[in-house]
Amino acid sequence: MDFINIFIKSAFIENMILAYFLGMCSYLAVSKSIKTAFGLGLAVIFVLGITIPINWLINEYLLGENGIFHTDLTFLRFILFIAVIASMVQLVEMVIEKFSPALYTSLGIFLPLITVNCAILGGSLFMVSREYNFTQSVAFGLGGGFGWFLAIVAIAAIREKMRYSQVPAPLRGLGMAFILTGLMGIAFMSLMGIDPAALAGK
């Protein structure tokens, strides 16, 4: 039950893009068409779902005081986390290339970009500051990735339709994408009152 609660909470209520605005760079750059947005969103779900549990293990058993070194090594957290993310992205890229060349060609260009997606590192840092356990961190990774995926596909769909609207010239493209994201953020705020734990209790 805990798993589903955290999944729903991280996907809808605390959406990475629309509540925290993490990963905006690639979100704005890749949301011009639904097809590419879909590919990037899938890759983000993948990488978030893998890196957050791995970083949890590293944080718990390597850096913590109860870990194998018995000393507080948390100052190394940033370097280790980013190294894990960079190598995981590389690994995911190789695995996909080996087993599904079709998916690889459609994701190809976006995979290396994910390393510098704030949402990935942000997810790991949130996982530490919220003190999740292992199952919760798996749920958080998958849920956060799914929320990110939803948001980028939604904005891509809206931007495709926006092409037929008469937007003032200086606001065209980027400016409009910002204002649309703001409106979507306000719309998602209406989900904030939902408390999955209370729903499960009933």
Partner: peptide, 25 residues
């Protein structure tokens, strides 16, 4: 709310591009 900052950036971009015409998309 954090949505406000995104509106403000949108408006700053709008003003910036109306003043500096060569940046228009």
């Amino acid at each position: 709310l954090s949505s406000a900052s995104i509106f403000i950036i949108g408006i700053i971009i709008w003003i910036h591009r109306s003043v500096n015409k060569k940046l228009v998309d």
